Amino acid sequence: MAVELNHTIVHSRDNRESAAFLAHILDLEVGAEWGPFVPVATANGVTLDFATVPAESITTQHYAFLVSDDEFDAAFERIRARGITYYADPHLKQPGEINRHHGGRGLYFLDPAGHGMEIITRPYGNLG
């Protein structure tokens, strides 16, 4: 069997809020809560399991999602409709802009726990 990423745990202040936030932006489903986790599964089978932890335990992480052009347009509209600040860069220095890296489009935004979320329409480098 080839090695695949199956799931990762995403620390949040409120697991339901963070899972619902990401699921809404990316037009994904929030799965059934199991134990301390609220899962959101991606199309390639990787599940983000949101877990509520004390705010001081949250270390900011980065999560990047490869989406189609149509999915980007739809997610971008949901981001703008909710008044979420978005950026062209991971250092959050270019607010209100998108990037055009690798011949595609990309942007960054923060989730309710402060994690850096990224959507891109073209993979970086030679990966895919």
Score class of each variant (00 low, 15 high):
Phe65Cys: 07
Arg13Gly: 12
Pro54Asn: 01
Ile84Asn: 11
Leu127Glu: 11
Asn99Ser: 05
Ala75Tyr: 06
Ala64Pro: 07
Phe109Asn: 11
Tyr124Ser: 13
Tyr124Ile: 14
Ile58Ala: 01
Pro112Asn: 03
His11Asn: 13
Arg82Met: 04
Ala55His: 00
Leu107Ala: 01
His24Met: 06
Met117Gln: 15
Ser68Glu: 07
His24Phe: 11
Phe76Gly: 01
Asn44Pro: 09
Glu33Trp: 00
Leu48Met: 15
Ile25Arg: 05
Ala88Trp: 04
Thr42Tyr: 10
Leu48Cys: 11
Leu5Glu: 09
Leu26His: 06
Ser12Glu: 06
Trp34His: 05
Ala113Thr: 02
Leu110Ile: 02
Gly128Leu: 13
Thr47Ala: 14
Thr60Pro: 00
Lys93Asp: 13
Tyr87Leu: 07
Ser12Gly: 11
Pro54Thr: 03
Thr52Asn: 01
Asp27Tyr: 06
His115Tyr: 03
Pro36Met: 04
Gln61Ile: 12
Ala20Ser: 14
Ile120Val: 15
Pro54Tyr: 01
Phe72Asn: 08
Ala81His: 11
His101Phe: 13
Pro39Tyr: 08
Phe76Tyr: 14
Asp70Val: 03
Glu56Asn: 00
Asp70Ile: 01
Gly45Phe: 03
Thr60Arg: 13
Leu22Asp: 08
Tyr87Ser: 11
Glu4Phe: 14
Ala43Arg: 13
Glu56Gly: 00
Ala32Cys: 00
Gly31Ile: 10
Ala23Leu: 11
Ala64Asp: 05
Leu107Lys: 00
Ile79Val: 15
Thr121Ile: 08
Gln94Val: 06
Gly104Ala: 00
Trp34Glu: 03
Thr42His: 10
Arg122Cys: 09
Lys93Gly: 07
Asp49Lys: 13
His91Gly: 14
Tyr108Arg: 06
Asn6Ile: 02
Asp111Lys: 07
Phe65Arg: 03
Glu33Val: 04
Asp111Gly: 04
His11Asp: 08
Asp49Arg: 13
Leu110Lys: 14
Val3Gly: 04
Phe72Ser: 07
Ala81Lys: 12
His62Ala: 08
Pro112Cys: 03
Ile119Pro: 04
Gly114Asp: 02
Arg105Met: 04
Glu97Phe: 12
Ile79Tyr: 10
Ala64Tyr: 01
Gly96Cys: 11
Leu92Tyr: 14
Ala81Met: 05
Gly125Ser: 13
Gln94Pro: 00
Val67Phe: 02
Leu48Phe: 15
Leu48Ala: 14
Val46Trp: 06
Leu48Asn: 14
His102Cys: 09
Gly31Asp: 12
Arg80Thr: 08
Ile84Thr: 12
Ile84Cys: 07
Ile98Trp: 04
Ile98Cys: 08
Asn126Ser: 15
Arg13Pro: 00
Phe65Ala: 04
Tyr124Glu: 10
Ile84Pro: 13
Ala43Val: 06
Glu71Lys: 05
Pro39Leu: 07
Ile119Lys: 03
Gly125Pro: 03
Ala64Leu: 03
Asp73Pro: 01
Ala43Gly: 12
Asn99Glu: 02
Ser12Tyr: 05
Gly116Pro: 00
Ile79Arg: 08
Trp34Arg: 00
Met117His: 06
Thr85Pro: 06
Val40Pro: 13
His115Ile: 03
Pro123Met: 12
Arg82Glu: 11
Ala64Val: 05
Ile58Gln: 04
Pro112Val: 04
Trp34Phe: 08
Gly128Tyr: 14
Ala51Gly: 00
Thr121Trp: 05
Ile119Ala: 02
Val46Ile: 15
Asp73Tyr: 01
Thr85Lys: 11
Thr47Glu: 15
Ser18Tyr: 04
Ile119Cys: 03
Val30Lys: 12
Ala23Met: 10
Gly128Ile: 05
